[in-house]
Design a protein around this nucleic acid. Structure first.
Lengths: 139, 139
DNA sequence: AGAAATTTGTCCGTATGTATC
DNA sequence: AGATACATACGGACAAATTTC
């Protein structure tokens, strides 16, 4: 098969499907997603494409991946081995929607949103601070 | 050559080098980076690895890529074909550092920072709002 | 207008490195 | 130590957007 991606590319379709499974609870919060190889077999896609799909979910803060372990769904603060050194560079909290965020999300000003803050570094020094806002998971 | 990435992976080393060129002005703001193939030839890396390096820069808001055109350095608001419909999904402005940002960046509270806001969508609906903060370019 | 060239986007298959179990 | 799983890297192929002729 060549590479037909009329309309949506496959990695995006796969990301969408996985997103549904997570939000519907088919993959409960904190659970491990199937391995990349397993997902590749299920969707008949190469591992690279699966990784691309997972990267989309990661950017949207829907999953968190750990080397050698797997990818967790909705790992809001992966309460796994937190006896180890805690996650240093990323925090999460609830905030009230400012007027601009409220307009974007289409909610009332003051509505509680989830803010996830992370820090990128360049050789130690802080490069960017990234704040991702999203609506609280309903479920 | 196999895949040795002792210490830092190659895509990160390449991203670092490109970052230096941009910040030093060797690649001036708004200029096009060399093509992915050209960079691959220069760094003796595959196109995939180059693309990974560029993705790092894109996440740090150091470059912006356009399909069929190329990757622009520091394209703060790529003043190219802006007669077309401007992309309203990403904005940039100056803000005063709140206490938390000030602490992270190691500056005084109230110092002006650059905030770039972008919006991700899932089938039209707003998914996340992302705000990236960084220090103003010195130069 | 249309065709060709250029450049980024997507996808595959494979191989090897590294972290975890 | 071995098995499992994610990370990095290569090379090739084709799709899609843009520019150039």
């Amino acid at each position: 098969m060549p590479t037909p991606h009329y309309g949506q590319p496959r990695y995006r379709v796969i990301a969408d499907e996985l997103k549904h499974r997570i939000e519907s609870g088919a993959i409960p919060p904190g659970a491990l997603l199937p391995t990349e190889s397993a997902l590749g077999a299920e969707f008949r896609a190469s591992r690279g494409t699966i990784r691309q799909a997972i990267a989309v979910l990661r950017d949207a803060c829907l999953v968190a991946t750990e080397h050698g372990r797997g990818t967790y769904a909705n790992a809001l603060s992966h309460e796994r081995g937190l006896d180890k050194r805690a996650a240093p560079e990323t925090r999460q909290r609830q905030v009230a929607a400012d007027p601009e965020l409220a307009a974007l999300f289409g909610v009332e000003i003051g509505t509680t949103l989830i803010e996830r803050e992370s820090v990128t570094r360049w050789n130690g020094a802080v490069g960017n601070v990234i704040r991702v806002y999203r609506l609280p998971e309903i479920r």
